[in-house]
Nucleic acid binder design. Sequence first.
RNA 1: GCGGGUGUAGCUUAGUGGUAAAGCACCAGCCUUCCAAGCUGGCUAUGAGGGUUCGAUUCCCUUCACCCGCUCCA
Length: 540
Amino acid sequence: MPQPETSLMNRLVSLCKRRGFVYPASEIYGGLNGFWDFGPLGTQLKNNIRDAWWRDMVDCPPIGPDGQPVSIVGIDTSIIQHPKTWEASGHLSGFADLMVDCKESKKRYRADHINVFEVTMRDEDKEEKARLFFSYVEPEQLNEIVAGLIKRTKKDSQYYLSFERHPRNDSEKYCREEGLANNFLSKIQSDFILIERPFTALNAEEQAKVIGPDAKNAGTLTEPRSFNLMFNSYVGVFQNEESKVYLRPETAQGIFLQYKNVLDTSRVKPPFGIAQVGKSFRNEVTPRNFIFRTREFEQMEMEFFVPPEDGMKWYEFWVAERLRWWGEMGLSKANIFRHEIGDGDRAFYSAATADIEYKYPFTDPNFGELEGVAYRTDYDLKQHQTFSKTNLEYIDQEAKTRYLPHVIEPAAGLTRGVLALLCEAYQYDESRASPEWLKLKPSLAPIKAGIFPLVNKDGMPEVAEKLFMDLRKTHTCQYDAKQSIGKRYARMDEAGTPFCITIDGDTLTSQNVTIRNRDTAQQEKVALDQVKSYLSTKLS
RNA sequence: GCGGGUGUAGCUUAGUGGUAAAGCACCAGCCUUCCAAGCUGGCUAUGAGGGUUCGAUUCCCUUCACCCGCUCCA
């Protein structure tokens, strides 16, 4: 099938705007980086995905690995919580890392990851000639720098390099550990001055002299800047440090904070889950790729509390279950990928994490995150227990034991789900009157059926309107009598509407309507009084 | 945050230091008995701000947004 010149993403973004799925936020003011608004169809689609998740999590959860139905309850917590929440969760410190940019190499580093060491160059009389600040991040970089220095000392014999002792070890041992040449010491004259400090420990004057880890010239590193990813605000009219609060960067913490209340009031016991859907906010450094990475987004998170010894069993269960679910929503197997996060890359508190990734057009042939399933152990409850001084243990009356449950967290991006499903649904077929159309799963489609009088006369509009008034009670429908029937079909194709019901001359005489199938463009006759049950069957 | 690119109507494009053009879409009317038909009419644009100029959409500066690459993604 020949594809148009413009990229898939551009066409999708264009269609989203044209049909009212997604608009740039604040567009009339020039837009706002990292924010998008959902239009009528997009909102409907998002709500449908959200509702499907809620139904499959809370109302009708799957059967667990032990053959019993899983027990999950839903809650809805505040976007703004007590600021201590984020201290306990680690978001405040984790998000507050100072970053440094290099103007020469264009790289960015965590300020405390840059190791700086100072080299004093002296002449033969040991008079100080120059002080240089070298820096490195990887040990290999240190080797390179030192090798360069040795070369330089040899060539230019009037200088002696001197390093101070390494603070942690004596120099000899240090060389050994870092894999430096054994004769390193002997090659460098006199006493070593190797003052190694993190970049953050330097004063501004010194920082300005540092040669960046990947740079040749000194002074190319910016001063450390905070990249706190949490939005903040103030509670009350006095804006000071005491009144400072944060917009939640994830919905999960609200669940942990209410875990005990739910346990005490809902007659649940481990294993059980608490689910929540809602907005989260992260002041992302680089919002990018349409609604993939935005500063305000919606999450569908569920925290599943289990006895510690059952952690891995439930982790495996939920990863498999969530993969299955996204498939059921319409994502093809070829486009979903289970990405097991390795030991080095996982959050420190997590015993296992798998990302469910989707092959978005902008990541293709690679995949991008759609949902993360993390085995968070008892980290969160333990933290909140410590910080709040509240006992959060579960007391098992039967077994006469008490423990902090372990947590499995399937955390899905609702906004990303909308994107993935739109990408998956987007079809281009030049042979159709409407080359672009959305093959959405019927139950997720924003509009389930379009209802059209074939022509705008002979009593057809009246019958169609009556049918519309009846169907709209049970299904999201749209009545359209404008322009030609072909245009109306095409419009519905772009909206992903699975069925179009046409009232024609035949309807007036034999009480039959024509139902057109979006995917095949085939039509079938259905009795007027059977339309509702037809839709219900097809949409279930 | 850095580098590169792009900003003209809802979309896709044209054009110009001197009245901004077209196709499609959209709206209204007519017509129309099944896949963006036709006719008539209509709405709508130089991302924003500043400078140079008699005059700027065009040249310059700043800014904003989007795209690509880096970086970031607890």
